[in-house]
Design a binder for these strands. Structure first.
Length: 212
DNA sequence: GTTCTAGAAC
DNA sequence: GTTCTAGAAC
């Protein structure tokens, strides 16, 4: 029997190709492949690898992953504090190098889709065509986004990270505006793509002052 | 994580 | 008719 061949193979164009790794594993392991992708890799040291997010949600959006394979935030303990602090330090350095004008945040998604703990380094312009959905927006602007600083502090105090999974899921579905308006207005400048998203959800921009 | 799509909602 | 959403596939 001849091997089945797809008539159409999206994502297999030369540009989108992940590289020599022809067969990719389950999608949730994608970060593992990205770590080895020279196109995405920014830097590495003895503890971490720094890559560009494949679908950046802002002008600067990086991921910092430890070589050590840590499945999720629940697996973190006091043993990881030196690593977590190193990750944050590398993130801050990277942000300063990337842009002095833009504000950045450093942190973790409460319930990430991709396995292997990774810290996001993301500028707060949110100016990217990849930022398309309410879920995207909420994952970076609600409590779904856990600041590295707070994660570290929590582990120092209690030895672990508490994540309310059901609540986290709900955060992604929440309406865009109210949380945004109350808590994130002061540090966020909103760019056209986001404005579009807001319009889509019937939010009037008149309610907001988008200047920093 | 993204993309595609059927069904709901408008 | 269009837009929005949730679910499955990848």
């Amino acid at each position: 029997m001849a091997a089945k061949r797809k008539l159409h193979e999206p994502g297999n164009s030369s540009k989108n190709n992940v590289g020599p790794l022809a067969k990719k594993g389950h999608w949730s392991l994608g970060l593992k492949a990205s770590m080895d992708d020279p196109e995405l890799r920014v830097d590495r040291d003895e503890m971490v690898v720094i890559i560009k997010d494949k679908y950046p949600k802002a002008r600067f959006h990086f991921l910092i992953l430890p070589h050590e394979s840590i499945p999720n935030l629940k697996a973190l303990s006091r043993d990881h504090l030196p690593l977590l602090k190193h990750i944050e330090k590398r993130g801050v350095e990277l942000a300063e190098k990337s842009s002095k004008a833009l504000k950045f945040r450093f942190g973790y998604h409460a319930v990430p889709s991709m396995s292997h703990v990774h810290m996001h380094v993301i500028s707060q312009d949110f100016d990217s065509p990849c930022l398309k959905t309410k879920k995207h927006w909420n994952s970076f602007t609600t409590d779904y986004f856990l600041d590295s600083k707070d994660v570290i502090e929590q582990i120092e105090q209690s030895g672990k990270v508490a994540v309310d999974q059901s609540n986290a899921g709900q955060l992604l579905k929440n309406p865009l505006v109210k949380d945004f308006c109350q808590s994130t207005l002061h540090w966020c400048s909103v760019q056209p793509h986001v404005s579009q998203l807001f319009e889509q959800h019937l939010v009037s921009q008149e309610h907001f002052d988008f200047s920093v």
